[in-house]
Amino acid sequence: MHRAPDVALLDLDGVTRRYGALVALDQVAMRVEEGEVRAVIGPNGAGKTTLFNVITGTVKPTAGLIRFADQAITGLPSHQICRLGISRTFQITALFPEMSARENARLAAQARHPRRWQPFAGARIFKEAQALADAALEQLGLSGIADRPAGLLSHGDQRLLEVAMAMAQQPRVLLLDEPTQGLSVEETAQAVDTLARFLQASRMTVLLVEHDMEVVFRLAHRITVLHRGAVIADGAPDEVKADARVQDAYLGGLD
């Protein structure tokens, strides 16, 4: 069954975030359909990470409405938003360095376990969470290094482990904040190959912030361009590439 095309899984309307005089997000409207890989691009300081923070509830919007799966989530605390099915990764790698990759992913899966507060369900919670975690590690091609401490993994594997942790939570939307940040050219190529394969196989709904245009054009179905907090273009990769305003923004000519 297909959803009606006008029903978006994630729907932002007039979302604004001000810091004093600075407008980090300016009336952002955006609709992400189920199964879509959407990239959000824009020059430094365009408001991409703020957008993620507002969606996940770590930053409250000054104005506007965010709906997720037909439910208003504006202003909910971040752990509740997360529990509704929005998982994210961070621009700067955030892991539990002394735990193994498996334990990292298991802790992620455990957060969604319905019995996680029951005092004597420990063995069962661990077992079920571990099953989800191992499946996610497999999806991201990390099974071979799953028993190593996360802090000792290569940077590329650490980035992928973060994606696996998000996936272990069985989210409905995955927010990836610059998944290739800080990777070398070869590492980036490898990570993007793995991500492309994984996205194709899983048909995950993804919102992706990325600096590297090659990565964006490789992974995204649709692109939203932010500039100084406002959406200046929104469309298929080819349309966006050809858009004069986008080219101006990236060359710094837009005022």
């Binding site: 971040s78 529990r83 892991l95 539990f96 002394e98 802790l107 957060a111 996680r116 005092p119 939570q169």
Partner: peptide, 25 residues
């Protein structure tokens, strides 16, 4: 400390911001 509860405590010890981001209160 060896229960799922203890695993969350270790998460808080190693990276509380990430533990929150995973959905733990």
């Amino acid at each position: 400390v060896r229960s799922p509860f203890g695993a969350v405590l270790r998460g808080i010890r190693e990276n509380e911001a990430k533990t929150i981001a995973l959905g733990y209160n």
